[in-house]
């Protein structure tokens, strides 16, 4: 296929040419997804750990929901967030629709169940190992949670990376709540969708290759960080 070969050429020239518009789009993609994953981690790690550690009413249901929502369709999340943020919706007064803020919110909701469900598993496994010792230390429930999250940090990073992969790659949610507005809310995936709809398949695939390279780079950086730290504490 000509397009396939052309796509790699496009990807290379896009990256090497430091195309200003591409840089802007990559920058927004990274910012939105980092923020979304950061928020999801801030909420999802404690939530997952709480599901793993504490007994409370609805705990089983919550755990099941988190697991089920790991596969939530982005379009559905996008629609729900749209309906919330629309001027006709309950949060319309915030004026967040078609801004990066709305995209962060949508991706955060998409990623939260992944981070929380994986965290719950990781924390539960670690608790199995630490349980008696922490009991012996008379660690309180919050101290226990903090200890397990901190000591599980290298494994939990994998959960966060899984969330990041989901966030940076999804198109359905950011398309609806961001609107793919040029120089404002256009990210890698919506740009790819746009170029595909223009029939610029090679350019679209070229952007796709850049996106994959980006996701790989983030993963490598995170894993390198982990491998550098692990021998000291692992």
């Amino acid at each position: 296929m000509d397009d396939l070969a052309a796509a790699f050429g496009q990807a290379a020239s896009l990256l090497l040419g430091f195309d200003a518009e591409l840089i802007e789009i990559i920058g927004l993609s990274l910012r939105v997804s980092f923020m979304a994953v950061g928020l999801a981690a801030l909420l999802g790690l404690p939530l997952g750990a709480a599901v793993a550690l504490y007994r409370f009413p609805g705990r089983t249901l919550l755990g099941a929901l988190l697991n089920a929502f790991m596969g939530l369709p982005p379009v559905v999340v996008g629609l729900v967030v749209y309906l919330m943020l629309s001027r006709a919706g309950p949060l319309g007064a915030l004026g967040l629709l078609f801004t990066p803020g709305a995209m962060i919110l949508a991706q955060c909701l998409l990623v939260l169940p992944i981070v929380a469900a994986l965290s719950a598993q990781i924390v539960a496994d670690l608790n199995e190992e630490y349980n008696e010792q922490l009991h012996s230390f008379a660690a309180g429930p919050l101290q226990r949670l903090a200890t397990l999250v901190w000591d599980g940090r290298f494994s939990l990073m994998t959960a966060i990376l899984a969330g990041f992969g989901r966030a940076i790659a999804e198109v359905g949610a950011v398309m609806i709540v961001g609107g793919n507005i040029a120089h404002s809310t256009r990210v890698m995936t919506t740009a790819i969708a746009l170029e595909t709809s223009k029939g610029n398949l090679a350019l679209a695939l070229g952007l796709g290759i850049v996106l994959i390279a980006l996701a790989l780079a983030v993963n490598f950086a995170a894993l390198a960080l982990r491998d550098a730290a692990r021998p000291r504490y692992g």
Binding site: R31, F34, M35, G38, L39, T99, P100, G101
Partner: peptide
């Protein structure tokens, strides 16, 4: 802090 600087002028 990162959140604050990421979108300075919305």
């Amino acid at each position: 802090l990162a959140a604050a600087v990421a979108f300075p002028s919305l």
